[in-house]
């Protein structure tokens, strides 16, 4: 028989599982501090939890930018669906485009629960008020680009996305698990396209190398300039777990050897692994180009946004029809 005395309460209020920040009797400062402690302790935040505005805004901005990038990211690839070299490639590319559109929908859903409507997010994207990733502002010139995008752009993205599976914001972390699972297929598809080209004719090998030359600059810019981790609010809130430079180093460590082994060479003479520090050295990416491109001044920024606007207008009747309240019979 259990000692009857043990039936008495034994946990102090502090040891109880309710997060302290959920206590409405505390002052805003106390709740804020408790919330910071909660996320710094590696615990999760759910959609209906109390959260400081600073946190809500940061998660929303981060997820919205991610959603925008998935939505806009399909445009360079969709241009190649009708030009895919075989039926199998066409099926795979179509499936990838569908996946990315699906990721956008899942992410907009996460963002909606933070308090901004999907319609507003679409509108802000079309108005150029919110951003999408730099790599989706460039043209695709050959089938080689399709392989390099699916392999390396998705690879650069997945190193970031894998770290997001540990995000402090629970709904985002869970969604990233599903997204990473699907992205891993895209990387295999892209690598398969590139390796197939490398086994082909000299012209095909040249095409793959040219595509790599074109995409290397944007790829190196993708994770952004080195920043002071102490000043990074997204790191502070544990929305993301790693700095841009950490992600770039991970990307280089995994993918540069895989490029070299099939005879592809990134167009950077400075690129090498510094054995002593274990870090990759590279020519400083063109950060001015990054800023220009993500503010909507890239080579294809406006064309892609125009295309999205056109489709938004052309499909308006579908939304109106479906969302219309049926007239009472």
């Amino acid at each position: 028989m259990t000692d009857p005395l043990s039936l008495a309460p034994i946990l102090s209020p502090d040891d109880r599982p309710t997060p302290l920040f959920a206590d409405p009797d505390l002052t805003h400062e106390q709740r804020y501090d408790a919330f910071v402690e909660h996320v710094h302790g590696g615990q999760k935040v759910e959609a209906r939890d109390w959260m400081p505005d600073e946190y809500r805004t940061s998660v929303l901005r981060f997820v919205e930018m991610h959603a925008n990038s998935e939505l806009m990211g399909v445009l360079p690839e969709r241009e190649w669906i009708m030009r895919a070299p075989t039926l199998k490639r066409k099926l795979a590319l179509t499936a990838k485009v569908q996946d990315e559109c699906g990721h956008a929908q899942l992410l907009y859903r996460v963002a909606e629960d933070l308090g901004k409507t999907r319609e507003q997010m679409y509108q802000d994207l079309l108005d150029g008020k919110t951003k999408f990733h730099n790599v989706f502002h460039y043209p695709t010139k050959s089938w080689g680009d399709v392989g390099i995008i699916a392999w390396l752009v998705d690879a650069a993205a997945i190193v970031a996305q894998q770290a997001l599976r540990d995000s402090s914001y629970g709904p985002y972390a869970r969604t990233m698990k599903k997204i990473c699972w699907e992205e891993s297929v895209h990387i295999m598809h892209g690598r398969d396209v590139v390796v197939t080209m490398m086994n082909g004719s000299q012209a095909q090998r040249d095409m793959a190398q040219e595509a790599l030359d074109r995409w290397w600059g944007p790829l190196m810019q993708m994770h952004g300039p080195r920043t002071d981790p102490a000043k990074d609010r997204d790191l502070f809130w544990r929305i993301k777990e790693k700095t841009g430079e950490q992600l770039r180093q991970e990307f280089l460590s995994t993918y540069v050897p895989r490029l070299w082994e099939v005879g592809l060479y990134p167009p950077d003479k400075e690129l090498k692994l510094d054995e002593a520090s274990g870090e990759w050295r590279y020519t400083e990416p063109d950060w001015q180009e990054l800023r220009t491109v993500v503010t909507g001044h890239g080579p294809k920024s406006q064309e892609r946004l125009d295309f999205r606007r056109l489709h938004h207008d052309q499909t308006a009747w579908v939304r109106q029809t479906i969302l219309a309240t049926p007239a009472p019979a």
């Binding site: 805003h28 709740r31 959609a47 209906r48 109390w50 959260m51 400081p52 505005d53 809500r56 909606e112 629960d113 933070l114 308090g115 409507t117």
Partner: peptide, 24 residues
Amino acid sequence: MTTDKTPSEGHVDDAGRLGAGADP
């Protein structure tokens, strides 16, 4: 200050329903 912006996720009502006031 923090405002209670919960337009989409809603809140638990007295009957324990998860999404009272949620996006239907």
